[in-house]
């Protein structure tokens, strides 16, 4: 895979016109820039093998629907993650099964660097988190993990999910607060109703 000078373009300004004649060139560039991080994100959610298929499907869907991408409405990264998020929903049962079973695997490597120094403590905490994530609504889980694992900001997450940025922020706040208290949130009709 080649690094191109487009790498220097900030992600939020990466809003290419996808209707041009050089389809392979433009999609090659998109793939080179976004496939690896997208794969890492998806692999954390559903495992490496399923992530291979999802990355492949995401770019093929994007290719087929390239005329629907409107650069004025958002960065191309949000659009790609939006497609991936829709595809991911089909694997949600697989994801939930893994989360309910505890963590798929723990990052043992990081434990030397953790403040919760005791491994037993730390592993129990991660397992508890996994189970709590399984209790979240799909939308809540997407907001949390698009932020935490995919590293998107609130504006991008709003673009991915097609919801207002204010909703993303309040949802994130509510979900994080509930997880910190160690019990999963219950989805509510209005984000404002969530103070218990």
């Amino acid at each position: 895979m080649t690094d191109r000078d487009d790498e220097s373009l900030p992600v939020d300004r990466d809003r290419p016109y996808l209707g041009g004649p050089d389809v392979a060139g433009e999609f090659g560039r998109l793939f080179d820039r976004y496939a690896a991080p997208l794969h890492r994100y998806l692999a954390r959610r559903v495992g490496a093998d399923a992530a291979n298929d999802l990355v492949s499907a995401t770019f093929l869907v994007a290719l087929n629907q390239r005329h629907t991408y409107d650069p004025r409405l958002g960065a191309v990264r949000s659009w790609l993650y939006g497609i991936a998020t829709n595809l991911l929903r089909r694997s949600v049962r697989q994801e939930l099964r893994a989360l309910r079973a505890g963590a798929r695997s723990l990052d043992r490597e990081d434990t030397h660097d953790t403040r919760v120094v005791d491994r037993v403590d730390a592993e129990a905490a991660v397992r508890r988190l996994a189970r709590s994530l399984a209790e979240l609504s799909d939308g809540d889980r997407d907001v949390l993990l698009l932020t935490s694992w995919a590293g998107l900001d609130s504006t991008e997450v709003a673009g991915v999910l097609g919801i207002p940025v204010g909703t993303v922020r309040s949802r994130l706040h509510r979900v994080r607060k509930a997880l910190r208290r160690g019990h999963p949130t219950r989805p509510s009709a209005r984000e404002e109703d969530c103070h218990d």
């Binding site: 895979m1 090659g28 080179d32 490496a48 798929r104 490597e109 990081d110 919760v116 996994a130 694992w149």
Partner: peptide
């Protein structure tokens, strides 16, 4: 910070074999 740490440790990023991505890229191309 503790929550972020737990999130960081849950489902660590598996190694992505660059050859797998190269294969996917070739299909897209």
């Amino acid at each position: 910070d503790d929550l972020d740490h737990a999130l960081e440790r849950l489902n660590p990023i598996p190694r992505t074999d660059p050859r797998t991505l190269a294969g996917l890229r070739a299909e897209l191309m």
